[in-house]
């Protein structure tokens, strides 16, 4: 027999379904929610409900949005001739924070992952090709992570786009700002030298 009442057990089980949350953490979170004032707990429930009801994919860039097209795709100040291809909305937010890019985005929602059964059809690649075919795009920046899967996805996209009359570029990989050069690994240093620019 469980020490917790059924309603609390249900909450623990549901919280335990979240990524990175084990049984103990789920129980700790459930007990914390139980101790909260009713208003706060209801606000949490409402925000979960709201997220499921209002958030959808932008039909252009496939990031999460409440309005379609999303704020970035609808912004007339942003250039339409450059698309930055990212793995997920989190990467898009990181690039946005840097303020280094003023074009549009395209979210793939993953990278090629043969062992997880994720192939080109599972990613938003066809949609990217359709956007490019529309004719406004002059440059596609491949900003997938510099991991094996991210690089392979970038190579795959570069291959697909080689016959299109657009510039296909890859974000540079190299020495992080503020680090001591000698503490970087060989592969990072090699890539940094390959991606060197004129001073």
């Amino acid at each position: 027999m469980s020490v917790f009442p059924p309603a609390l057990l249900r909450l623990i089980r549901n919280l335990g379904n979240l990524p990175g949350i084990g049984e103990k953490t789920a129980a700790r979170l459930a007990l914390a929610i139980l101790r909260w004032p009713e208003v706060r707990a209801k606000e949490l429930a409402q925000s979960i409900d709201e997220v499921k009801e209002k958030i959808r994919f932008c039909s252009t860039c496939f990031s999460f949005t409440e309005t379609d097209p999303c704020a970035i795709c609808a912004d007339p100040k942003r250039t339409t001739d450059a698309i930055c291809v990212v793995e997920d909305p989190g990467d898009m937010m990181a690039i946005e924070k840097s303020s280094g890019f003023k074009g549009r985005y395209h979210v793939l929602h993953g990278v090629l992952s043969p062992m997880d059964g994720v192939g080109p059809d599972e990613l938003k690649i066809k949609e990217l090709l359709l956007r490019i075919k529309s004719g406004q795009v002059k440059e596609v920046i491949l900003a997938t992570s510099p991991t094996v899967a991210g690089e392979a996805t970038a190579a795959y996209l570069a291959g697909l786009l080689q016959n299109e009359y657009i510039a296909v570029t890859r974000i540079a990989c190299g020495v992080p700002m503020g680090t001591d050069l000698k503490y970087n690994d060989e592969m990072t240093l090699r890539r940094a030298l390959e991606a060197r620019t004129k001073a």
């Binding site: 090629l112 062992m115 094996v148 690089e151 392979a152 996805t153 795959y156 291959g159 592969m187 090699r190």
Partner: peptide, 14 residues
Amino acid sequence: ASIRKVPERFAYAA
């Protein structure tokens, strides 16, 4: 490092 540069190599390695 070359496996990641060619999607077919990546697929076979996986």
